[in-house]
């Protein structure tokens, strides 16, 4: 059987399959369906320095082959996470990675430094790409200056593996990726959701409470794949591919495009056990085609 291990900087993954923030809770919600120890990692829901109620309902609209959401980073804050969630997840035998968001570079850095103290959290994913909050989030991820300022601030406060999650809602994602790399990121993950809208023709109103939301699901996969390919060809750090990955074939496409690992997001809603099925499917692909290691297919697509 092929070797499925990969590395994201100092992080050892037993396989390249992670679950995406905001789609997998704290992992606990999926334990009835998935042996979390069989995953490369779990990226838990977005955490901020202070608690956030998120946006009002409705927060979701279904689309063809996807969905829009405008949850808006609802969470109880980093102190609550450290005191109440961390004890429940620290013994899960996989890489438990915390997604961190904020309103200012100082916010991000403060939140990251608290998580730096947690022994069983080996990495954070910095969310500079949430389209559903008024301040911070995507505002930082859409300019080179904004991305640089946040990543630099966090890099000073955070000593473990730092992954930065990029927004696709930009003119040149490679410019942002390079800036983030220069500011000290250990890896980039992409893409976050694409900004979209839905309208109810009977009510003649926009469906989502804040008018717009982030589009996810299979419908965004071609865009994500293109961006992963472009970024992987310019940066020196590992790239984690995200965007509509729903099966092993999708995952292999991202690996071939240059992703060292992948995250499964919205597909968890359709099949709560999909993540381990993708792990198995990648193994089968490698064996079928005679690859000794998953590393042998990363970025080999011309």
């Amino acid at each position: 059987m092929a070797d499925s291990r990969v590395n994201i900087a100092d992080l050892d993954l037993i396989n390249p399959v992670l679950t995406a923030s905001g789609t997998f809770g704290y992992g606990l919600e999926y334990q009835d369906f998935v042996d979390l120890g069989q995953l490369g990692g779990v990226i838990v829901k977005g955490t901020t320095l202070h608690s956030r109620e998120g946006n009002p309902y409705p927060r979701m609209a279904e689309t063809a082959q996807g969905m829009l959401n405008c949850v808006g980073l609802q969470n109880k804050g980093v102190d609550y996470f450290c005191a109440h969630i961390y004890p429940q997840i620290k013994d899960i035998r996989t890489n438990m990675i915390v997604n961190v968001s904020g309103n200012s570079p100082d916010d991000y850095a403060e939140c990251a430094s608290r998580i730096n103290e947690l022994d069983c959290i080996p990495a954070i994913e910095l969310n500079i790409s949430c389209p559903n909050v008024k301040h911070g989030g995507m505002a930082f991820g859409t300019t080179v200056e904004g991305a640089t300022s946040v990543v630099k601030a966090v890099r000073e406060a955070y000593r473990k593996t730092l992954i930065v999650k990029l927004s696709p809602n930009v003119t040149s994602i490679t410019d942002i990726a390079l800036a983030v790399q220069d500011a000290g990121a250990d890896a980039v993950s992409l893409i976050n959701t694409l900004m979209g809208m839905a309208i109810d023709i009977e009510k003649r109103k926009r469906v989502l409470s804040i008018g717009t939301g982030g589009l996810s699901g299979p419908c965004i996969k071609p865009v994500a794949l293109r961006m992963v390919y472009q970024v992987a060809h310019v940066v020196q750090i590992p790239v984690i591919g995200i965007g509509g990955i729903s099966n092993a074939k999708d995952a292999v496409e991202f690996l071939l495009a240059g992703a060292t690992a992948i995250e499964i997001g919205t597909a968890n809603f359709l099949d709560p056990a999909i993540s381990v099925k993708v792990v198995k499917g990648i193994d089968e692909y490698l064996d079928k085609h005679g690859f000794e290691s998953v590393k042998d297919i990363i970025g080999i697509c011309e």
């Binding site: 905001g22 809770g25 919600e29 999926y30 829901k45 969905m67 809603f269």
Partner: peptide, 9 residues
């Protein structure tokens, strides 16, 4: 969306 308390929609 998820039905499991994960997505907060």
């Amino acid at each position: 969306a998820c039905g499991l308390g994960a997505c907060l929609c």
